[in-house]
Structures are given as structure tokens and as C-alpha cells.
Design a protein around this nucleic acid. Structure first.
Lengths: 332, 332
DNA sequence: ATGAAAGCGCTAACAA
DNA sequence: TTGTTAGCGCTTTCAT
């Protein structure tokens, strides 16, 4: 077995308590004691047993990351990895461990419940796309603090970190308007998702504000994935748009494929703008103009928010909405 | 706070030990006691405190997943998610929690070391692409049992789960030969990676066995990513291959883009075969023939292997090599 | 500034 | 079949 506090105490000639104080950086320890003990800890490469610590303090220093794996999404979109990176980094910096929960949608509730009540995390973050209300109820019942990445339509007072999708969509559409495009089409996200809805609203707002007609034919609903961008764009082409705002980069990439297949040129014949600023966008031909969503940062922020929530048992609610920005590239 | 064993003991009129036995499904408890206690546990939705349990048993029922995030790779390839899914599923089925460690390559050692010695996992799985030997030494020094997904060139007696890359490449190349292609090119993986090396060897083996010339011009080294498939294919086209074996699906997809850009048809002008059988392959136009690597299953297997290792302290080494299979689609 | 001792919630001998 | 008891390795009062 590994060393224990007792070992360190013995070797240093001090008591367990003093060693504990040193490890936790508590005051009330003589400089000499601190030095000696620190030295021995280093030498023996000692690390306190987390289980014992957790038992004594009631805190386990671990947060959970709950991802209902809606298969297609997770598999095709780099979104999750960026998020995971940000979250992981934040955990590392705050000395928290990160527990990964990938749950299948079907058995969602039971499986989650089990974990939630096991007391193996101090709180959790969830990045789900298609919550239903019972699902949120389940989460609330756990009595664990949690933070949601990406809002939903529900009007609960939940902790969340989210992007300003409305502003992003407006940015994108306004950019197209400013460039002089007149027949601006959009491939939307699913209209039962908050982000999908808001991005469409932003598009409409801007057309309206600029006195452009909102033409039904130029609005078509996708599902955020590449394939749907391709098929939607094929349909749109019949109505001769001069620009397409795709509500996700993956759909924009799909749309670009369709446009190229139709032997049209980007942006001369049709401009394309995406949303998310995935690393892939820069590699497109031509590189894709898009709206920057700082996914990594949102992950990081979610952890920091959760930590705040955890030492704020007075029930304060933390909601952060991040502003996106425009990344101009050669597709517009 | 949540309930404790003691609470259940009190309410049921039995002792802590008996309740503990019931919870752990141990024998030697009367039917009546078991029923009563089970009922109360359900009613109170009691779950034993994991920290206490871990402290008492010395086992924490958690395994770590160590992923050195070589940024480009992780971000572009669905490989990791498939793997994570398989691993997560296996953990769930075996009542283990899964700790996620994404470590930056640079700070690899120190960061890992900290985690490794914290005693917060019973063992870990690592899916790294570019290990160096010092890295492996670090892992070994932790004294934690671990399983590697994907072998490396080192001749250690390590536990691993890997694909038979050689057989896969042979399958792919032979398929092209069987279809009558004569000028078969290959876009290889990085030659400093074991998988990259083996997949090239398999290609050469088959050409050789079929009396075909191995032409330098038809072999070009990529890095498994889509972009490199594209650029490599562009170069290859000058040498008029009638088929291309790409050592990864992502490269195959890149190659297909290059071929289409050259206004050539797949497979009439050039056939393409990939490797991995990512979900994406089926959606290509035309759908991509490829070698099936059961990534999900490998993840699952890795966990099972790790569990075996963990209750086999006699140092038995477990090495599993999985056979790939051919998935024929319209690109060949 | 330091130490003694109790206790966190559980498991696992050992007794009964 | 059941209960008693002694830890697991740490934190945290409370003395000193």
C-alpha cells in the first residue's frame, strides 16, 4: 500500500494533525515543521488517500459530466470534445476529478438516478441537447448542484452557461445583408430546440429590420448535422438564393458540398455562413465564414460556475450568456 | 445528509452488519431479514456512501480513462467517442465509475503523475497514439494496473487490446487485387506509429504475394486525418492509380474529395477503400468500402481486460488482438 | 504551535 | 443467522 499520514508523522517526528495541517496549507504551523514535513512528503511522493479525505470532510472533490448520447450528434460533431477539453482543464486547475457519464437516451432516467444518488460526485455539469421536463425533474430530485450548458425552453431557475444564439444569428445575417446579398436563405436547427429556434429568430429579425422579405421557401429546417445541410441546400437551390445562413457549421459544410455539386461557386454564386466556428471551418475550401462560439471557454466557465454553486447553498442561481463574434473568411 | 447504514439498521431492527450483507448480496441472511431490509432501503432510496466503502475495502470502484489529447487527432476523428462509449458502457455494466483524464501532451508527465498517485482509481485505460518510452515508464511507476488500447513498438509485457492492423490492410489490398485493379496506390498512416507501419506492411505483402510491383510513386505518407488524405491523393493522381487504399477512413474521405475535384469518378476511374469503418463512411457518395474496426467493442473489451488484470495480481499479462473485417460498399 | 482523540460510514473478522 | 467490534486514513475539535 501507499504511505499514510501516520507514516509521514512518524518520519517527521510530528503528529498526524500537524502533517494534515501542512498538507491542507492551514496556518498555525511553525516554519520549521512545515519545511521538514513538506520535504518528507516530496521524498516519499505521498498523496493523501482521497476516500479517507472524502469520508472525513463529506466532500469528494469530483464532479460529473453527464452526456446523454444522442448517437448521431455525439458521433459527428466536434462540439463535445471541445467542451470536454474545457471542462477537463477547469477541473484540473481546481483540483477536481471529472467523472464521465455517457447515458443512453432510453435508460436515461434509471441509469442517471443510480449515479446521482451514489454520492460519488459533489455536483455535475450536463450538456444535453434534448432534455424533456421529466428529465430535469430527475436531475433536480438528486439534490446535487448542477449546471447546464445550453439553455432550454423551460422557465426554471436553473444554473446555466449558454451562448447568445440570437445575437449570433443576427450577426451572421447582418453580415450577409451588409455584403449586399438580397435572397438570403437559412437552414435552421431543429425548431424544438432552443438554440435552433433562437437562431431562426435572429435571422428573421435582421431581414425584417433591413426591410427584406421573409420568404418561406428560403427557410428550411435541418438538424444541425452535416447530412441535413446537404439535403436542405439541394432543396434551397431551386429557389435561387444568393446566400445561405446555416445554423451550424456542420450543416454549412454539407451545404457547401451541395453547392459544389451543382457546379456553383462560393461565394460568387452563393455565399455561405455557418455557426459555431469549429476547427474544421478554417480548412474548408473556401474557408467558411462563421459565428464563433467559444465552446472550450464555455466548458471551463461551466465548471467555475458549478464550484460557485457548490459553496453557495443559499440557492443563488448563476446564469451566464456568452456573446458570440463574427469570423470572416472567404465563403462570403 | 443522506441516510446511513446505521439508519437502515435501526429502522429494520437488524444490525449494521446484516444490512451490509444485504446490500452486498452476501449469503447468510434469512429471507425475512433480506426482504425487510431491502424494502426499507428502497423506501428511503438509500445508497451506501462510496467514500466510506472505498476506505473500508481499499477499492474505489472507479477506473480512469487517460487520453493525451493530441489536438488535431481528437478533434477530427470520431474514434475517441466510439471508444469512450464502449468503455462507458462496460463500466456501467460492471458498476464502475469512469474518470476522464484529458491531458495536454506537454505537461503530460507531471499532470498524470499527480492523478495516478492520488489513489482515486483502481486502474486505468489509456488510448494514446503517440507514446514515448518515458511516458510508459511513468505509467508503470504508478503501480496501478492499466490496459492500453492500441499497441506500440515497445516490447514491454503490457496489457493491451488492439486491432490486427496487418490483417486489415491485407484484407483491403486483396479486395482491390481481386477486383482486378492493377495500379493500387496507398496513403499510409504516420510511419512512426505502429498502426501506420503495419497497415503499410499489409499492403506491401499482398501486392508482393500477387506478383504486383511495389511502386514508390504509389505510396505516400499521410497522418490519418482528412486533410492529409486530400493532399496526398492530389499528388497520387499524377501517377494514374486505378485504386487507392487509404489507411484511415478520414483520409479516404479526403481522397474522395480530391478525386471528385479532378472530375474523376469513383469507382469507375479510381476505386477507394478506407480503414476503420467510421459511421461517416456509409454516408459518403458513393458509400465507402472499408475495413471494420470494432472500436466500440475494443473499448468494452479494454474495461473487461482491466478488471481481469485487477484481480490477477500475480502479474498475468492480457493481450488481445481483434480481427477486422471487410465492409464492401460502392466505392470499389 | 502541537498533540490526543473522536468520528466520518462502511466492511470484515470474530463471537455468539 | 445475527451482532460486536475493530479498523480503513483522514479531518477536526479540544486540550495543552
Amino acid at each position: 500500500m501507499a504511505h499514510t499520514l501516520e507514516d509521514i508523522a512518524e518520519k517527521s517526528g510530528y503528529s498526524r494533525s500537524t502533517v494534515s495541517r501542512v498538507i491542507n496549507g492551514e496556518p498555525g504551523v511553525s516554519k520549521k515543521a512545515r519545511q521538514q514535513i513538506t520535504k518528507i512528503i516530496k521524498e516519499l511522493n505521498f498523496h493523501p488517500n482521497q476516500a479517507a479525505r472524502a469520508l472525513a470532510t463529506g466532500k469528494i472533490n469530483t464532479i460529473g459530466l453527464l452526456i446523454p448520447e444522442t448517437v448521431n450528434f455525439i458521433f459527428t460533431d466536434p462540439y463535445f470534445q471541445l467542451l470536454a477539453q474545457g471542462i477537463s482543464k477547469a477541473c484540473e486547475n481546481n483540483d477536481y476529478a471529472l467523472l464521465l457519464w455517457l447515458t443512453e437516451p432510453e435508460i436515461e432516467r434509471s441509469s442517471i438516478k443510480k449515479y446521482l444518488n451514489h454520492g460519488i460526485v459533489d455536483g455535475f455539469i450536463t450538456a444535453s441537447i434534448n432534455f424533456d421536463e421529466p428529465m430535469i425533474d430527475t436531475l433536480l430530485q438528486s439534490n446535487l448542484p448542477f449546471v447546464i450548458i445550453g439553455r432550454h425552453a423551460y422557465e426554471f431557475d436553473l444554473n446555466y452557461v449558454d451562448l447568445d444564439n440570437l445575437a449570433g444569428a443576427e450577426l451572421a445575417t447582418q453580415h450577409l445583408v451588409d455584403r449586399g446579398y438580397k435572397r438570403i436563405a437559412t437552414i435552421t436547427g431543429p425548431q424544438d430546440m432552443f438554440a435552433g429556434e433562437e437562431r431562426l429568430t435572429g435571422y428573421c429579425n435582421v431581414l425584417h429590420a433591413n426591410g427584406l422579405v421573409i420568404e418561406e421557401n428560403l427557410i428550411i429546417e435541418g438538424d444541425f448535422l452535416q447530412e441535413s445541410g446537404y439535403t436542405c441546400a439541394k432543396k434551397l437551390l431551386a429557389f435561387k438564393p444568393d446566400a445561405i445562413f446555416a445554423a451550424s457549421d456542420m450543416m454549412a459544410i454539407g451545404a457547401m458540398n451541395a453547392i459544389r455539386e451543382a457546379e456553383l461557386h462560393i461565394p460568387e454564386d452563393i455565399a455561405v455562413i455557418g455557426f459555431d466556428n469549429l476547427p474544421l471551418t478554417a480548412q474548408q475550401k473556401p474557408p467558411l465564414t462563421t459565428i464563433h462560439q467559444p465552446i472550450h471557454q464555455m466548458g471551463y466557465l461551466a465548471v467555475e460556475t458549478l464550484l460557485k454553486v457548490m459553496d453557495n447553498p443559499d440557492g443563488e442561481v448563476f446564469q451566464t450568456i456568452i456573446r458570440p463574434s463574427l469570423v470572416t473568411r472567404q465563403s462570403t
